[in-house]
């Protein structure tokens, strides 16, 4: 049985411009210890998917209108807020993009890293702070015992993200959800943080959902990939499937539009034409149809379902496109 099974998840928001279906019938699963990347551009629904799994959708204006999120034999969507609080930070932990706004500026690092131990493991504060020292050492913060009394503003961006990782790992979660964990960081610091995250999730046996827009990061760290566009998964598969044999026109378009360090620089980039989708006014058929170069009449009226191509490789597209000849 997979560790996490998301089935038909649908999340809506009421906005001034009408009801926005941010996540639309999304299904995926995740095995123990596996790293799944959810890739997509802004507005693709990747972060809302994560927030829905974590039970962090603000209600109102948000509402999960359909779906199941099975985790360790329970449907997380059925849990009360109190029950969900027991799951978060213990069995499922999260790491966000901006460590400055997810750390409490008024509390010491020691209190924040020790808090999950005190709360979920029912350790005394003396024990929790001792645990915090060990965790800070694990994330390679130099001289951790002396840093317990420090406040977040005294740390650099990279160090704050290390603190976030220490907090996330405190209770040895089965699942870590990392939402753009390194987007705000410089490239050499990003490499440090991602290596650390990879090594520690391996050591702790945690599975990870890595949410990112960076196709390079995905290639380096993910076992499997879901590509999202306008609230839906348009293609999913192993990293080898998605990069070696992309089959959805959007995935193919993304691959052609990024400059790469390992290729000929004379190649002209092939952008995806058109503008990002307006979530409040999506077309009735395939959301990518207005920008797709393989579009047919059927795509404009009928919505393609996510279907298997081979093994675990799936796509939601009527056309049969491939970059292989």
């Amino acid at each position: 049985m997979p560790l996490l099974e998301v089935d038909g998840l649908t999340t809506r928001f009421r906005t001034e411009r009408g009801v926005v279906q941010a996540v639309d019938n999304v299904s995926f699963d995740l095995e123990e210890g596996e790293t799944l990347a959810i890739v997509g551009e802004s507005g693709s629904g990747k972060s809302v998917t994560a927030m829905s799994v974590l039970g962090l959708i603000p209600r109102p204006p948000g509402e999960i209108t359909a779906g199941r999120v099975m985790f360790e034999g329970r449907d997380l969507l059925e849990l009360s807020d109190e029950e969900m609080q027991e799951v978060r930070g213990d069995r499922i932990a999260m790491i966000f993009q901006e460590p400055m706004s997810s750390l409490n500026p008024a509390l010491t690092i020691g209190l924040q890293v020790g808090e999950p131990l005190n709360r979920h493991r029912k350790m005394s504060w003396t024990e929790s702070l001792k645990g915090a020292v060990g965790l800070l050492r694990k994330v390679q913060i130099p001289d951790p015992a002396s840093r317990l009394q420090a406040y977040p503003h005294q740390f650099s961006g990279g160090m704050r993200q290390r603190v976030m990782i220490a907090m996330a790992l405190a209770c040895q979660p089965k699942l870590i959800i990392a939402d753009e964990p390194t987007t705000a960081l410089d490239v050499t610091v990003q490499a440090q943080i991602l290596e650390l995250l990879k090594n520690l999730t391996r050591e702790f046996g945690s599975a990870m959902i890595l949410i990112t827009h960076d196709l390079g990061v995905v290639a380096r760290y993910a076992d499997r990939v879901c590509v999202m566009y306008a609230g839906r998964i348009v293609e999913s598969g192993t990293a080898a499937d998605i990069y070696g044999d992309p089959r959805h026109p959007y995935t193919l378009g993304l691959m052609a539009s990024i400059p790469r360090l390992d290729e000929d620089t004379q190649r002209r980039l092939v952008p995806i034409e058109g503008q990002p989708p307006n979530l409040a006014a999506l077309p009735p058929g395939c959301s990518f149809a207005p920008r797709c170069r393989y579009v047919t009449d059927r795509c404009r009226s009928e919505r393609p379902a996510l279907e298997a191509i081979a093994g675990r490789h799936m796509k939601a597209c009527f056309a049969n496109v491939s970059n292989r000849v």
Binding site: T188, A191, V218, A219, R220, Y221, R260
Partner: peptide, 15 residues
Amino acid sequence: RALLAAVPIPNPRVE
């Protein structure tokens, strides 16, 4: 060299 090595290349086989 360190900067170039830190940039992930969007190809799992290369990575």
